[in-house]
Design a protein around this nucleic acid. Structure first.
Lengths: 178, 178
DNA sequence: CCCACATTGTCAGTATGCTGTCAATCATCA
DNA sequence: TGATGATTGACAGCATACTGACAATGTGGG
């Protein structure tokens, strides 16, 4: 339960909204929880200098070597413009490589470097620890219930997202250049 | 349920992580849900040109007229540096005023303008619609269950956040300058 | 074959979100 | 009182997010 704002002075004019309405709004709670999730991830993975977004991109490139930026965007449901900068940073850290495609001069294919693959292997336990920590305060049954409902809700709202998840579509056209 | 990545080619070396692990990780789901929440908020409130963060700040200033930026940060659990820019934009839009405090030359007190108060009254139905829409896909009982667990989890993880919610503390010192 | 359209990566611009740092100011204590 | 440390707002720097635009390129229809 979030702390409640108890106004000591009675108000003459009723306010249109209370802080309690904000504290219990799903949008506010999702924002706070996302920030908590990032904070725990960064804390657990400090030694690897990797953000949650960069981690998701690394996993996707690992799973689908030779993917291009646009399809990567669809596979992890991240904005295409944002992803450009993410890829740039991963390349600067030496974790991935960008190689021009032979058949299509527009696209640049993404591959993990040896160092990137090694880092990915090493970071997994820390990531798992962070994911476990953010649900830790709940009882095991509640953790499962929340996770199930959350996964359902994200999936059902997929089209409402600015960048819907399109894992299947993105992979259909893959497989010839790897 | 998120779409599953079915690799057509059997892998010789087992990968350290699968996309499925990413899709079901709480951190990934919270990020996606937060982005969906923002998208729905912006869509419903397009006519008011107000972001979720700006809205929360407006409500807090409305509830606590004469609050300063540091206490506002604690009341809505937003980063103090970020809040500076948010306040600047709200002031530029003419929704709030910043007035120097007489007792303490460092602080600037925040008040809604008449236009800001009017806007806040008008935007509330749109905000409520957005909040309802993001839970809409779930059955009513599931909505309640998710919201309860989410509120619990955010509260229990409060200290893990970079900017913990400190509504009570922040308000203790308020009330003399309004 | 050429033109209209789509796709790809990139960039500019805006808005969070966080880490630091800094000067001005305040509060406290020796 | 005077030095010390804390607080406040501001700022620089990095990393998401999203919008809209753009040039280069690819694709298909006429």
């Amino acid at each position: 339960m979030p702390p409640r704002t108890s106004s000591p002075m009675p108000n003459s004019k009723p306010l249109p909204v209370t802080m309690d309405a904000v504290y219990t709004a799903p949008g506010y709670l999702f924002r706070r929880m996302q920030q908590i999730a990032v904070a725990l991830f960064v804390e657990e993975c400090r030694a690897f200098d990797l953000t949650p977004v960069q981690y998701a991109a690394m996993v996707a490139i690992s799973t689908h070597p030779g993917i291009d930026a646009t399809r990567l965007s669809a596979v992890i449901a991240f904005d295409r413009s944002t992803l450009g900068n993410v890829i740039e940073r991963l390349e600067a850290k030496g974790f991935i490589e960008r190689k021009p495609a032979r058949e299509d001069k527009r696209v640049k294919l993404l591959h993990l470097t040896r160092a990137g693959a090694a880092m990915l292997r090493d970071i997994v336990p820390s990531v798992d620890k962070a994911q476990a920590r953010m649900l830790q305060p709940l009882k095991p049954a509640d953790r499962k219930a929340l996770l199930t409902l959350l996964a359902q809700l994200v999936d059902l709202n997929n089209e409402a997202s600015r960048v819907p998840l399109r894992a299947e579509d993105a992979l259909e056209h893959l497989g010839k250049s790897g």
